[in-house]
């Protein structure tokens, strides 16, 4: 079975964001595998352990992504693909999706796993876009997965409810929190990862013209939210604090007693 994982390198969620000249400052920041993509890697490795096959991790980016790709190999993925974006001046989600789809369209794919969303730009676009371009089925935000031959049983998170779905391969799925507990790379895993194949794909290797991947959206500004004003202390014993807060909620901010459609 050929299992592909879509990976994104993101800012560590511990990082504060600073902006200079309209760009987020990356210098000195820690980068990680997008936490939702870790669920995808874990699920892919678990599937391979049960059903056999190969796990290939794919990302689009620059050389700096090698670190995160090696981490995924250390977790247990078999091989990694880096679609090199050094020559791409301007990219948006459309660009990345089209390039990744162009690569995958030449592969024999049974399962594609991705994160439900990335913690940096939070767009949640690439995976489903890729599924559409490949003409394959998708199920997003999965929290449970069982595979039996060609049959796929899925649980997915729908705004807090759980939807049980039955479908078949080939399929693309995006992984939601709660699906699994991603493993840490083991020391032997880290040693092995250094020797596992990491293939670089250049734009010219992909059968796709610029008109097809050029961006369809652009960012015109980035900014930090204004700092919050100092809050108001509600003092006294628990009883008094509670009484005062109840009064504030009711009288001052009028959020109490409003229905959904008012």
């Amino acid at each position: 079975m050929n299992i592909y994982v879509l990976l994104k390198r993101t800012f560590d969620t511990e990082e504060h964001i600073e902006i200079k000249n309209g760009l987020v400052i990356e210098e000195g920041a820690e980068f990680i595998i997008n936490p939702y993509d870790e669920y995808a890697i874990e699920e892919a490795i678990t599937l391979r352990e049960k059903h056999g096959g190969t796990v290939t991790v794919v990302t689009a980016g620059t050389e700096s992504c090698e670190k995160e790709l090696r981490t995924s190999l250390a977790m247990g993925a078999d091989r990694a693909i880096l679609i090199n974006l050094e020559d791409v001046q301007e990219a948006d989600h459309h660009t990345i999706s089209e390039l990744v789809a162009a690569y995958l369209s030449k592969q024999d794919v049974d399962i594609i796993l991705g994160g439900n969303v990335s913690v940096d730009d939070g767009a949640g676009q690439v995976a489903s876009h890729v599924a559409e371009k490949l003409g394959i089925n998708q199920v997003t935000a999965i929290t449970g997965l069982k595979l039996a031959g060609n049959n796929v049983q899925i649980e997915r998170d729908v705004e807090g409810n759980v939807e049980k779905i039955e479908t078949s391969l080939p399929i693309l799925m995006t992984c939601q929190q709660g699906l699994n507990e991603p493993r840490y790379p083991s020391l032997p895993g880290i040693m092995k990862a250094k020797k596992k194949p990491l293939e670089r794909i250049e734009l010219k290797d992909l059968d796709i013209g610029e008109s097809q991947w050029k961006p369809k959206t652009e960012t015109v500004e980035r900014f930090l939210p204004p700092p919050k004003e100092e809050g108001k202390d509600i003092e006294g014993e628990a009883e008094q604090q509670a009484k005062e807060l109840a009064r504030v909620l009711k009288k001052e901010i009028k959020v109490v007693g409003r229905g959904e459609d008012s």
Binding site: H16, T217, V220, F223
Partner: peptide, 23 residues
């Protein structure tokens, strides 16, 4: 139309627009 959306889960914001008419 120019759209504002949070990035880094609201640690920052960006304004985006379409390069084409449709979107």
């Amino acid at each position: 139309p120019i759209f504002t959306r949070p990035i880094y889960a609201g640690k920052a914001f960006e304004k985006k627009t379409f390069k084409e008419t449709s979107g």
